[in-house]
Structures are given as C-alpha cells and as structure tokens.
Design a protein around this nucleic acid. Sequence first.
DNA 1: GAAAAGAGTTAAGGTAGATTAAGAAATTAG
DNA 2: CTAATTTCTTAATCTACCTTAACTCTTTTC
Lengths: 208, 208
Amino acid sequence: MDYGLLIKNISKHISLTDEEMSYLTGLMLCRHVAKKQFLLKEGQVAKNISYVNSGALRAYYTDKDGNENIIMFAINDWWVTDIYSFTTGQPALLSIEAMENSMVYDLSKTNLEELFTTVPKFERFFRIIMQNSYVREQLRSIQNLSISAEERYINFVTKYPQFVQRVPQKQIASYLGITPEFLSAIRKKITSPRRPPDPAQAVPKGGL
Amino acid sequence: MDYGLLIKNISKHISLTDEEMSYLTGLMLCRHVAKKQFLLKEGQVAKNISYVNSGALRAYYTDKDGNENIIMFAINDWWVTDIYSFTTGQPALLSIEAMENSMVYDLSKTNLEELFTTVPKFERFFRIIMQNSYVREQLRSIQNLSISAEERYINFVTKYPQFVQRVPQKQIASYLGITPEFLSAIRKKITSPRRPPDPAQAVPKGGL
DNA sequence: GAAAAGAGTTAAGGTAGATTAAGAAATTAG
DNA sequence: CTAATTTCTTAATCTACCTTAACTCTTTTC
C-alpha cells in the first residue's frame, strides 16, 4: 500500500504531521477496479470520494436516448465521485467506469466528516479541491458556450496530451460534446493538409 | 447597514458567536452598484468575492465575435465573483454587471485569508459554498450536453421562476446558450398551442 | 411627451453538427 | 491464429439552431 502520491497531492496545499497522514490513510479504503468495471453506477448513492492512485476512469451521464456524455476523466492523482450525489445523498446521475485497471483509495462521507472534525486543516484542503473543481467546470462551460468543436478539440489536445494517448477517440468526442463521426471529420480537416509521414507510426508498439 | 440576510445565509451552514459575526462584517465592505454599472470588468483581477444583499447582477463572457454569454445570474443572498480570476490572480474572463440597483458586501481575498486563519470555521463555510457551486455547474454541464434548448428553457422556468420575472428574455436566452430569436420561437411553440386567456395580463402593472 | 433606445417577434436562408449506414482497421477473446 | 468485437472513417442526408433583416411594442431619456 503506497500512499506516496496521495500524501504529495495533499502536501501541495496543506502541511501534515506524520500522525495526521496515517490518521488520514487509516480512514481510506484501497479498492481495485478492473477495466470495464464500475466505481459507481447511475442510481446508486455515491457514498465515497475516491483518490485515483493509478489507472484511468471516465464519469459519464446517460441521457434518455441512451447516449453517453462524458463529464470528466480521472487519471492518476485525481479525485473523483458524482459530486451531486455525494453532496445531496440523491441517486447518482453519473456512472464511473474504469478504462484501465485502476487502483483508488475511497474516503467515505462519514469518514470525511470525522476527518474534518478531528483535523480541521482538511476542511481547508477540500475547500481548495472544490474551489479548483468549480473553476475547472466554469472554464469548461465558457468554452462550450463560445467556441466551435474544432477549437475545443485543439484545446483539449493541448491541455490534456496524456489523455489523447490513453483514451479512445470516441470518448474524447463524447467529452467534447460531439459525435465520433464529427470528430473524425475534424481530425481529417486538421491533420490531412500536408501531413508529413510520422516515423513513430512505423515502429511496432511495445518498443523493444 | 443591515447584515441580517448575510448572517442568516452563513448560519445555515455554521454557527457563529456574536463576536465572530461582527469580526466578519468588519472585514466586509459595503458597495452600491447602480443599474448598468459593473462590479467587475473583464481584464481586471477579481480581488473580491461579493455577497449580494439586494438587487440583481449578471456575469457574462464576451467571446471573440463580441457575443455575450451569460454564465450566471446573482440576486439577493447569492455570492458572486469571477472565481477563476479570484482563485488564480489572472485577469478576469467575465464581466459582472448590475441589472438592477444593487447592494453588495465585498470580501477581499486578503481579508478572506485572514478570516480563515482567525476563525477556521469559515474554511468550512466556504468549502460548502464552493462544493455547492461545483455541483450546480456540473448539473448545468450535464443539461447542456444532453437536452434540447426547449427542455432547458422549461427547466429554467421551473427552477428559477424568480429570474423569469426580473430578467429580460434576451438574457435568459444568453444563459441558455441560444439566440433571443430562437427563444422567441420556442416560447411561441410552447405557449401558443391553445393558451387560455390569462386574466393577470389584463391588470395594469403596479397593482393598486 | 416626443425621440431614441432597447426588447420581443417573425420569417427566409444558412451552417455546424447529428444521424444513418457501410466498410476498413485495430483490439480483444477464445 | 482466427473470429468476434470494438474503434475509426467516409459520405449522404437531415435538423436544431444561427444569421440577417425588417417591423412592433415597450422603456428610457431629456
């Protein structure tokens, strides 16, 4: 059980004694989620907020026509839950599925409240996490309202190059709010004007 | 100077002694913003988070074609700022304009940090405010991705009837991410099928 | 209280992006 | 290694919503 990443993540915002660290980790539960398995399913109540130690997950909303709309990706060092359900206790609107074999540390709402009482500094930590999440969501709203799908794709590739390597294109389309067909058209338009042959393509995957 | 509403707002989430209350109000600055004046202009750094005591404001993003996209409304008992600028210290992307004569209490970032240090309970209060804002934004994202403009309008009217009374229709269109012309068409479609005459319409405004 | 400015409506024509369907390429499973 | 499944692409057709423009109604201004 390696809590190094988690501790580093938290230490960016507050400073912890060793006791506080082990008190925290004692309240968290390690969970493995195999690829295609769910961390949370729509309709369940989100009882935990989870820290992703390794792997990659996607949180998506399924609309009445059955289309999946990806709301967020979460990879190493991200926190993830259905924040609506976690906050209100209502059934989750989102499903959270592992796109790769993943390892997360769950922190239950009950344990989180206990943590807040015992070590109020954590209230600050989660204030910062929530505030940053709010900023991120608001920036995304602004983008969605004011720029075209093509620009959004270009921004996404610039901002999250790690995802582009790991996430199937149709999931990126879903995150951008467009169909895979249309993303394909965008990529063709962007890429094909005089693309030089990419030598990396010729090398078999897996390296040596 | 009446802090009643503000105190009530805060007491919903944490309990305060009289000293703590007056310490808080001592850190806040009352400001009147006349209709059509700005609480914040794009490009300025948001140095304050503001509690709206009375009036109504709108926060909007101006895109490169000069279109205004409303990101949020704020009326009595709401907190408002450009959270991105306030958090990062970068120039604001949003402008915040009073739609009615408004009275707000400003809390500067510096004073907020002092407040957190002196009365850590406020860290909890703002954690809750930020978390709720995050929930609200995420629900809005989900809606925008998955339902039609017509449904979004119906939901808006149901969720925020107070706004419908006070806010011009073109601003609601902007908030919904559509043009005023298209909202007009939606209203016609919704309203005209066999609308019974509304007796309230016949009564002159202002009542007696 | 007239003139100007703003808000709402209507209608014609245009476009970004959806849908459908089918084939090619890549992954996964057995 | 082959079959099955999933992902990506292409192209034709379609639609939700935009743009422009003209006209009406209301509100604001001096």
